[in-house]
Each structure stands twice: as structure tokens, then as C-alpha cells.
Nucleic acid binder design. Structure first.
Lengths: 407, 407
DNA sequence: CACACTTATTTCACTTCGCAAATATAGATT
DNA sequence: AATCTATATTTGCGAAGTGAAATAAGTGTG
């Protein structure tokens, strides 16, 4: 049962080079002296570490010298325009792929419908499409370092394994290693909402925020919980499936079998369903029953339509209760919300705020901002975040610094 | 903002010596070879580390030789009978102190009423009592290594600070350092319920269980959440105050100001209050209104008294909902329950089980045992757990291994 | 009883880490 | 041109873990 987190001397270097790399990345171009200050490492160590990062092509020296009294500092910056990655999201009916440089700029993107629903077929299409995409766009970068792939489903990011994704009948499939071997690139897998939260942490609205919660409302409702700068995953790596928290003991039956799950009230289909139902009952509204979309609903609500407002406020009420519980249980510094309905901020926010204020501990909700997420769709940015994190956490970085054995 | 978790070579040793110490502690007497296998360290390293632990008097060599074909192995065991600690709990109206050896055996215990309610007076009484207790019982051990003190209140264990404990008007008080300086011993502080959960993890019902939740129902309701072998504390170190999760939107007013908090239904005073109320309304019961205790309630319930059963089942229903939410949000491997009402296991468990089964994700509640905690009162064992953890996490261990500067 | 055999532990030479101090560097200042 | 100053690098050191070899301490065997 050996819980050995044994440490050895090499790991020290791994941790420190990752730290230096992260500092350069996050705090802009830095001189070696400044790095030494920030990292609390000795200048000599910075010299050694930065040399290796330079040799690996992960950072570069800038030319411009800042005018100080003495020897000009050489600023170190990340080599983040010529290095990049392929990020993908395998959604319920489409596959999106993007090429990012490490800076986070999207250099190319494309998407394809996925009509197959059987395991091997999906795997084949995924591999084929990825291969083609890399062949087509790969040379826009000097070097492609990895592939980050996200999907709505239960994922074990450690093993690169898809535990369960019903849409394509995936079950305990070691997709990561399978792709990695065939593509000749490291492949990182993750749940899309959790990866989205990570993206908010790294380059979005949760920057500098070690404890935050992202709630994303689309077809379902999911959350990504940042705790101490890390995604909280729990025993099975899948904490955040808040859609099936029961909020109405005698509520509607959910497809999961239980009653009154959050997803039966707060999720696009549920919201539209309830709207349609109320319309059919003859409640007055400017909405047309035949072309009901979230977009239309939001516009109507903002225009003052009582039915639209009512539906959204009802959803906000239950979402707010769930948020309040999460605030009590995770004590975050910030709440982020994503999803089409969030454009009705003016309608939703007051309800959410009231719920949280009334239903969570004062010391937990004081100064707790509720904000729009920077990325409103989980998209491919989550895949980018997976790779960025891997660089920061030294496993991928180490791979890039040791000239690989295979090539 | 320097997030520097910079690593240096010394830390490697700290981590490894803590690992070796922990292995010896948890996996019984071990030979050096076996330790090398378990820890994945080289035998040479084990020799060096174990020598230092021996010199510090933290472990000892056993005499008995096991009959193998070759040179007999020297078993290393923890020096856990002659080393010990003082553990205390500062409750709402009393102070309990115990002397434990490192094995966890209680060698002495005593308690005192605390009638003062003002900050300096409590501090003085605490210091005085601790000093006397140590003077009286300290020599039962070869060495007293630390003091572990728990209390119901908001604690910052890192700083040894009491954020907030209304009973004694404590607020942002650096009690740990204050006591440590005067007692000449390291003092560790912690919230009692969280420390209780830690005790369950280290020597109680959650041994070998990296993810578990303890819910304790006494005057209030609190939880200790073990995640990945550590107590989950959140940003302010106080995650687990579940008593103020709203479970009944239109419920009773709670002393915290909100309505329908869990504590207005599930907590000894709430349960007794509701019982009294129903009795007053004339509901038939064998209970006497004038001498209502949890003990009496439980006995009545087990004897089949309908009112007592009803009250307990109602509480279980709300507790179950809360547990289900926590299961969804933390994905534990085990649930532990503590408190006097838990003696009515036969009545409570089925309700809790049903709630969890109906209101949490199947993959999260499959094979999720609900058990009685080993320790039913938060007592002084939490203080013992704080010290034990400090030993395992290398900060206290390191202090014991370097012959201290002060003496 | 001497000898081989087996297993456990220690020793020793080696590499790596980070570190402190000394040294080199490159531009600004005088 | 000499000096100043902040920056970067080199050097030598101590401490970490490691692997191989040496040593220790028993058991079995002829």
C-alpha cells in the first residue's frame, strides 16, 4: 500500500525548473536576478536552470537592454510563439481541433461532425482527423509539443483513460496512451468542464486566484473546482458533476433516474422545456413556441418579458442554492459562470447573490465576487490548459528538456 | 505573489525521513531491507536515515531476530512508549487535558470547568492548567514532544491562530505561538471536528482511507473532510462548517441569522427542541417532557416510541440530504458518523442510506460504507492526531531530529 | 569444526543538487 | 580612460541519494 512519495535529488531540479519556467511565463520577461528574488533560489542556480531551459528551446533571451546603472540585465522570455500544441474537444456530436502556440493564440481551428457512435469508429476518426490536422497545420510552428484533448465524460487524467462517455460507448478506454503511441506526441486527456476551469485559472478570469469555482450551464450543468491552485478531482477524478445534486425533493424525474436534480431545472434543455410548458399553459409572453432558443429567451427576458424572466429567475434560484452549498463546502475566492444564459447577468446575478448571502457562512461569502467566465464555451481552450498545466507541473517540461530517446 | 514552492536538497531528506518514520509507525517493526523496498529508497539511504532517527531517539532496534537463512534482520520499531504529548480540548465550558504516549495510549487525563469568558482570563487559565498538568504528569514519559490543542471554533492551523471563538471572545489570537513560547514546547492548534477526522484517519475508522468524511452531531453539526489523505481546509482553513447549509428554505431561524440551516434540525438542541415541541402539542409518546435528554430519546426510539422515531427520522432525512450533497462534491470512500444520536443506528442508517442512494451519483455511492466513527466525542484524541500528523509531515519530526538550539 | 551459503547492513566512491563567495561582464558615469 | 554599478557566471563546498562492493552475522554442510 506504500504511500511512498519518496523524494530524490533529481526531483528538486524538476520542481525548480518548472518553477522558473512558470515564473517567466506568468510574470513576463524577467532577468536572472529578478528570477532569483522571486523564486528564492540562488543566482547560481538560476543560471544553471535557465541555461538548460535555453538549450531546450523553451525560453529565449531578449535583446533589449533596460537602462540601469550597471551591466544591463538580459531579460528571459518564454519561447511561446514558435512552440505549440494541438487542443481538441470531442463533443457530443462534433470534434473541434485547434492549433495554439504556447502564448495561447489560436493559429488554426476546424471542426467536424461526428456521426459514428461506436467505440472503434470514434477512435479511428479521432486519430485520422488529428493526424490530418497535424499534417496540415503542424509546420506553422517550429515544434508541436503535445496534444490536449477534452470531452464531456468521466475521465481519469492520470492514466489518460476515458472511464465513461455514453455518447460513444466509451468505457475504461486508455485513449490517451493509444493516441500518443500512434501520433508520436504526448497526449493529455481531461474532462471539458474541469479543463475549462483550469483555463480560467491559467489565462482567464481566475488568474491569480487559487480557490475558485466555475459553473458551466449548457446541455447539462457541470463545475470545475479550483482548490489551492489545482483542480479538485476527488477519488475518481470526477468531482464537479453537480448536475445531479438534488435541489427539489419532489421535482421532475431526471435521466439519471433520480428526482429533482439540478439539471432538471438548470440546463439549457430544462430551461427551454419549462418555457415551452408554461407557454402551452397559456401564460402571456412574447415568445414564439415554435422557435424557442436560449438566445430568444434571453432577449425576451432582457426586454422585460415576464415569462422569460420568471423561468430564468427560477433557474437562478436553484443554481444559487447549489452555489451557496459549494461556497460552504469549498470556501472559494471567486465564482465564475459560463453558458449562454449568463448573458442575462442583470436578471441572474441578483438572485444568485441573494441566495449565496442568505445560505452560506458570512465569512465565506464576504468579498466573494461572482463573475462571467472569460471563456463561455468549453471549446478547445481546455485542451490548451491541460498542456500548459503539464508544463507547469514539471512532467511535460522534463520530457521536453531531455532530448527524447525516441527521436 | 511569489508562489515559490522552491525545493532544495534538505527538503528531500525531510520528506524521506518522515516517510521512513511513517512506514515504521504504520507497518509495524520493519527491517532496513524491507524499508528500502517499501520506500523505494536505496538501502544505503535507509541506513543513513534510520541512524539519525535512532540518534534522535525516535525509533529503536528490537532484539528478536527472525529466523531467516542469513544474517538476521534488525527490526526497527517506533520509540512510542516513552515519548508522548499533551493533548487538550478547550470546549464551550470545560478544558480537557490528556497525556498520551505516541502509541496513542492515554496515560492520564483530567478536566476542569472553564467559567471565565474573557480572552485574557481564558489564556491565563489555559496556560496555568497546562503548566500544572505537565508538571504533574510530564515525568511519566521520557520526553514530551509537543502540545496539541483543539477547540470548536475557526482556527488557522498554519499560524496557530484562533480566528474566531465567540464563547471566549477569541478573535485573531495567535494562541499557538503564545503558549509555545511560555511552555517551551511546540504547540499545534486545530478545530476539534477536523482534528477528530484526522484521528479517525490515523488510528480510527478511516485508517487506510484517503478520502472520507466525518460528520459529528453534538451541540452543533460539523464535518471533517479527508481528501487525498489530508484534511480539506479551503482558503480560510475552515471548510467543514456544514451546520449552516440551508436544508429547508422556509425553515426555522438559526442563530446565524439565516433560515432552515442544517443545525436547526440536526443537532442535539434542535432535536430535543423539536421533541419538546411535539410533546407539548400532545403527540403520544412515552417520553417525559421534564427530563428530556438525547439518551432518553434514543432509548425511547429504540423501544419503538413513535414520536422519538419520527424526530430521529426527520433529522436523518436532512442529514442524509446533506451527506448526499457532500458525496457528490467530494466523492469519498467512506462516511463516518459521530454523536450520541448515532447509537440509534438501526433507525438512522436506513434513512441515510436511502437519501444517499437517491440523491448522489451511482458511481459515487456504490460501495460507499456508512460507519460509526471510532471516537464518538471529539475529546482530546484530536490533539493527539494533530501531533501525529505533524510528525508524519516532517516539520515536527525535523525539530526533534536537530538537537534544538534553545536547550 | 572449518567452510560455504545466505541475507542484512554498512562503507565508499560518485553524481547531483543548491548555495555562498569570488569573479567576470558590459554598459553608464565621471 | 578610469571608475562605478548592477548583472551574470564560475568555483568550491556540503549534503542528498545511489550503486557496487565490502562486511557482518547468522545457518547449513561435509
Amino acid at each position: 500500500m506504500t504511500l511512498s512519495q519518496v523524494a530524490n535529488v533529481e526531483q528538486v531540479k524538476q520542481v525548480n525548473s518548472a518553477l522558473v519556467y512558470r515564473l517567466i511565463n506568468e510574470q513576463g520577461p524577467l532577468s536572472r536576478v529578478r528570477l532569483a528574488e522571486l523564486s528564492a533560489l540562488a543566482p547560481a542556480s538560476i543560471t544553471k536552470l535557465s541555461r538548460q531551459l535555453l538549450e531546450a528551446g523553451l525560453i529565449r533571451e531578449l535583446e533589449e537592454s533596460t537602462p540601469t546603472g550597471g551591466r544591463p540585465a538580459i531579460a528571459l522570455a518564454c519561447q511561446d510563439e514558435t512552440l505549440g500544441l494541438v487542443a481538441g474537444r470531442l463533443g457530443r456530436d462534433r470534434l473541434q481541433l485547434s492549433l495554439y502556440n504556447l502564448k495561447g493564440e489560436e493559429l488554426a481551428n476546424q471542426q467536424w461532425p461526428v456521426s459514428v457512435t461506436e467505440q472503434q469508429a470514434v477512435m479511428d476518426q479521432l486519430l485520422q482527423t488529428l493526424g490530418d490536422f497535424i499534417a496540415q497545420y503542424g509546420q506553422r510552428l517550429q515544434r508541436l509539443i503535445a496534444v490536449g484533448l477534452t470531452m464531456p465524460g468521466l475521465i481519469d487524467p492520470q492514466q489518460g483513460m476515458v472511464f465513461y462517455m455514453p455518447r460513444y460507448q466509451l468505457r475504461e478506454l486508455a485513449l490517451g496512451p493509444w493516441l500518443a503511441e500512434r501520433l508520436g506526441l504526448p497526449v493529455y486527456l481531461g474532462n471539458d468542464t474541469r479543463a475549462h476551469a483550469l483555463a480560467e485559472h491559467l489565462i482567464g478570469a481566475a488568474q491569480g486566484c487559487h480557490d475558485a469555482i466555475l459553473v458551466s450551464v449548457h446541455q447539462g450543468t457541470g463545475a470545475g473546482i479550483l482548490s489551492n491552485g489545482r483542480i479538485f478531482l476527488g477519488k475518481n477524478s470526477n468531482v464537479g458533476e453537480i448536475g445531479h445534486i438534488q435541489v427539489e425533493p419532489f421535482g421532475q424525474r431526471c435521466h439519471c433516474g433520480n428526482f429533482g436534480c439540478l439539471e432538471t431545472i438548470v440546463a439549457n434543455p430544462a430551461i427551454l422545456g419549462r418555457t415551452a410548458q408554461l407557454l402551452a399553459q397559456g401564460h402571456p409572453s412574447q415568445l414564439a413556441a415554435d422557435n424557442l432558443t436560449i438566445e430568444a429567451l434571453c432577449q425576451a427576458a432582457q426586454a422585460g418579458d415576464p415569462l422569460a424572466r420568471h423561468v430564468l429567475e427560477h433557474a437562478a434560484e436553484q443554481l444559487g442554492r447549489t452555489l451557496a452549498i459549494m461556497v460552504n463546502l469549498f470556501n472559494p475566492q471567486k465564482l465564475l459562470l459560463a453558458g449562454e444564459i449568463m448573458q442575462c447577468r442583470d436578471i441572474l446575478w441578483p438572485v444568485l447573490q441573494r441566495c449565496i448571502d442568505q445560505q452560506s457562512l458570512p465569512s465565506f461569502h464576504q468579498d466573494l465576487p461572482i463573475e462571467l467566465a472569460r471563456f463561455q464555451h468549453a471549446g478547445t481552450i481546455g485542451g490548451y490548459a491541460l498542456i500548459k498545466r503539464a508544463l507547469y507541473e514539471s512532467d511535460l517540461l522534463q520530457r521536453l528538456m531531455t532530448p527524447s530517446v525516441t527521436e
